[in-house]
Design a protein around this nucleic acid. Sequence first.
DNA 1: CCGGACGCCTGTCGGC
DNA 2: TGCCGACAGGCGTCCG
Length: 271
Amino acid sequence: MPELPEVETTLRGIAPHLRGTRIERLSVRQRRLRYPVPDGAEQEVAGRRILTLRRRGKYLLLELDRGGLLIHLGMSGSLRVLPADIPPERHDHLDLRISGGRCLRLRDPRRFGTFLWTPDPLDDHPLIRRLGAEPLGPQFDGDLLYAASRGRRVPVKNFIMDARVVVGVGNIYANESLFAAGIHPNRPSGRVGRERYRRLASSIKEILQSAIDQGGTSLRDFVREDGSPGYFALALRVYARGGEPCTRCGCEIRQQRIGQRSSFFCPRCQR
DNA sequence: CCGGACGCCTGTCGGC
DNA sequence: TGCCGACAGGCGTCCG
């Protein structure tokens, strides 16, 4: 589920329910996530007020009246706001109970997610501090990609998935945006020209934004069970389409592992 | 600094 | 049907 559009959709879904509320209790059933949930977290967050919620890359940041929470959904995480008396199911690892009898519940079967409390400003946290540009922000453009890639030999696909360069571009959207821009995923990033990076940056913005717009349709039933359409609802041109004909030229879509991740591309449209 | 490999987990699917 | 390996939407860390 969680690529940037899903995290943004999650943020928009939970923020109205949580902003300004007071945390009554944190109940952790499974501490072992990507990093262990800090031992003192229950004590630290009890009684705190949630001031703001925002997204940085794929991290959700909750600023409290003392300290803050840093949440990442990893590969399989999801967050829901629901009545606290609904019994947790398998993989529901923690509840953040808020006023009004409801809670924010984290489910994460693979436990690659993150739930950390920190007393320091969230932007100073080691996991946040070195993150690169927001792809939907004004400072992200082709010139930034061009400048950051000079002298690099890493494949362009790995390059745009590097969170120190630009955040939030996961495997699906890396594949899709490279197809849209007509760039071969394996091309050395230092050998992609300025114009092609401008096209790539535009593709990334467009594809992420349209995915967010589509995710918005599931917002109204966010508090209900399930309801998330997932990425299968998106119009994918190459991802998971190995062996199928290219929608643009009819050539067979190739699948290849690049940087330990499945990559899909059209050998004719992408050079 | 750079590039590549690894490992943290569970669930699912295809092949035998 | 059962077993087994491969693979899955992430990413920090380690090593050369």
